[in-house]
Design a protein around this nucleic acid. Structure first.
Lengths: 109, 109
DNA sequence: GACAGAATGTCAATATAACTAACACTCCTT
DNA sequence: AAGGAGTGTTAGTTATATTGACATTCTGTC
């Protein structure tokens, strides 16, 4: 109810828009991929409405990012292929993680 | 009773509960700090209902954590073996990165 | 065990936010 | 000027978060 004009420049909407454009998607195409209306996208990107969690997860997947980045904008958050690599690594058993680490050590210059 | 394995809480609710208890707060005290009803807390922690963004921000503040962790269960910064893995990955050529990704895809369950 | 008080779980009803559909506006291109 | 593509905006609807009341479990104490 209180006025909540954010001083923070980087908003969730700004990050969504930035990543959508980086993916060469129009709002319409993006909406179709997510299964929501285009006007919902427009409102997300202008921070007029939030997103329920299910949609946040889909957004992160389609834009190859993490919910953590969308929500927080933390620069340390992994993106793209680095995120994919870490997700795979985390879903491995500890034995397989050691295999990956050894392989990476061998390949790294 | 040796060192307890650090387990990543699976759901948002589990993480909220874990942090609330770590702060020695009852649901009632927690609700009062946030300005919401106690039953809302109970439903968050049992994943019967989500939280709007404003409340997520307050939750993170009261529990001394980040929205990113609450939402995704991942801390913004990498640590230990994960950091080692990512450093190695980053020092690989793009060809070798592809190899690592393929290997990880094969190993991941 | 039985009781009381505290803490939490559950459910119907309500409040509020997300979402849709329709329309408006701005750029381009012809 | 007209039309189309892309996006912004608004009112209305749908979906979800939140509340309040009641139920349940847990923890001591007798």
């Amino acid at each position: 109810m209180a006025a909540k004009k954010q001083v923070i420049k980087e908003t969730v909407g700004a990050r969504i828009r930035s990543l959508r454009i980086a993916s060469n998607l129009t709002q319409d195409e993006f909406a179709h991929k997510l299964g929501v209306s285009r006007s919902a996208i427009a409102q997300w990107e202008t921070d007029r409405a939030g997103q329920i969690r299910d949609n946040m997860e889909r957004i992160a997947k389609v834009l190859n990012t993490s919910m953590a980045y969308l929500v927080s904008g933390e620069s340390g958050s992994l993106q793209g292929d680095e995120l994919a690599m870490m997700n795979l690594y985390r879903s491995c058993t500890s034995e397989d993680r050691q295999i990956l680490l050894r392989t990476a050590k061998r390949l790294a210059r």
